[in-house]
Amino acid sequence: MSDSRAALAPDTSDRAQSVPAVQVRGLTKVYDDGLIQALNGVNLDVGHGEMVSITGPSGCGKSTLLHLLAALDVPTSGSIRVQGHAVDSLDHPNRYRREVVGLVFQLHNLLPRLSLLGNVEVAMMGSRRPRRERARHALELLGEVGLGSLAHRHPTQLSGGERQRVAIARAMANDPTVLLADEPTGSLDTASVHSVLSLFVKLRAERSTTIVLVTHDSSVAEVADRRIEMLDGCVVKDNQPASVPRSGGPDRP
């Protein structure tokens, strides 16, 4: 893959739209010299604008899969393509994480000394947006997650759900086409879970963002229009809608 900045810009051509937003082939990941097999030949396609939940028990490999999609780790074998980018062989993974995908973690990981505005803006540092434009965009995103009026407050003044909404705004700061969320509701109360999930639904509807949502909570998974279940590093169930090309499919019946 070319390492030019232009190479990481979302490809919106017809050809690009015809291939899945996320394409995983024969993905394996082993730790401790092969003692732990976290992923075992996973195949997966996620269509553009699709919202997919990945569920399974602890240790099934769902978070590992998400980390590999986010280029936070490298696979042992197999290939990953996200928006046409070969994630398994990126020259500049940091640029990919900044420009192609947005990440939401279980813990919001907001910087406590920065205001909400600053926390969203920090993700845009290094982008080509001028400073004033960054502030305007951050404010706009905070408005979208319903926290525009609290932009100058600090994370410690917010509830858990509000903080996670700020984290989602931060993940959307560079207008990624793919949002990767790892247990985003894992540490939230029921009311907050509802508000965060509503936000994901809204993002998908309004921005056509492709969302991959990892969760251990089956009720959370239900918000997605496609549910994938994993067990022992394999996809064991995929209620794939007919509109998405079936190149991957379950690895294990």
Binding site: A70, N94, Y96, R97, E99, L103, A123
Partner: peptide
């Protein structure tokens, strides 16, 4: 976090 969100 800064590295994860794409800081070089």
């Amino acid at each position: 976090l800064l590295r994860a969100i794409g800081w070089a």
